[in-house]
């Protein structure tokens, strides 16, 4: 559908092992601007590692990760951190919100890390909470809200800095179907509206169905299903 668009993020021949265990064994992935790419595969296949490499959280042993023409693998830790602050957003399965901060403060944090002043960051955060239909829990702590609400707060936090890529690792993994669907709908809609691409790691087909394209990772190798058929 967006085949003509420039690749935003492109990984080629990524290899990564933890100790002797290979996690990635020659994985490739291309993400174009604004598309939702699902990364599927069995547990332990390396899909989370692929996501970490793409986001510059983990440095691959070999291979290249290009983001808008810049090679992430050649960047310093500080540069990659800065990139994550400004261009990327993250949603994880659970345990990602700082329990001591209120939901509003949690959402405001990435913007504040990127240098936005507190009031401005919190105003943006409030806007995003409302957009994700959780405006009413802004003042509560993560421990006081339901799992679905917490996950929507996490989505708001991922999107608040207007990232170009949102990385979502099993964002619905701890939710029931209904809440999972709701989070996915809000996430993909919001990403679509802001033009953010989404890299979605999931093992649930119904969640993957929110994507535009699917990559399967098996034994550390990636497979683009578009190209198989």
């Amino acid at each position: 559908m967006t085949a003509a668009a420039e690749p935003l993020l492109q990984a080629t021949a990524l290899r990564k092992s933890y100790g002797r265990t290979p996690a990635l064994d020659g994985a490739d992935l291309t993400v174009r601007a604004g598309e939702v790419v699902a990364v599927m595969g069995p547990s332990g296949s390396g899909k989370s590692t692929l996501l970490h490499c793409l986001a510059g959280i983990v440095q691959a042993d070999s291979g290249r990760v290009c983001y808008r023409g810049r090679d992430l693998t050649a960047m310093s830790d500080a540069e990659r951190s800065a990139l994550r602050r400004t261009d990327f957003g993250f949603v994880f399965q659970f345990g990602q919100l700082v329990p001591e901060l209120t939901c509003l403060e949690n959402v405001a944090m990435p913007a504040r890390l990127a240098g936005t002043r507190r009031r401005a960051a919190e105003a943006q955060a409030a806007e995003w909470l409302a957009r994700l239909e959780v405006g009413e829990i802004a003042g509560k702590r993560p421990g006081e809200v339901s799992g679905g609400q917490g996950q929507r707060v996490a989505v708001a936090r991922a999107l608040v800095g207007s990232p170009r890529v949102v990385f979502a690792d099993e964002p619905t993994g701890a939710l029931d179907s209904l809440n999972g669907e709701r989070v996915m709908r809000l996430l993909t809609d919001a990403a679509h509206d802001t033009g953010a691409a989404v890299v979605l790691v999931t093992h649930e087909p119904r969640v993957a169905a929110y994507s535009d394209r699917e990559i399967v990772v098996r034994d550390g190798k990636s497979r683009d299903l578009e190209q198989v058929s």
Partner: peptide, 16 residues
């Protein structure tokens, strides 16, 4: 540990 890793993913500086 997990929370720290998440914060690092978000690009939080180690010094912070």
């Amino acid at each position: 540990r997990k929370l720290l890793a998440v914060l690092v993913a978000f690009g939080t500086k180690r010094s912070a």
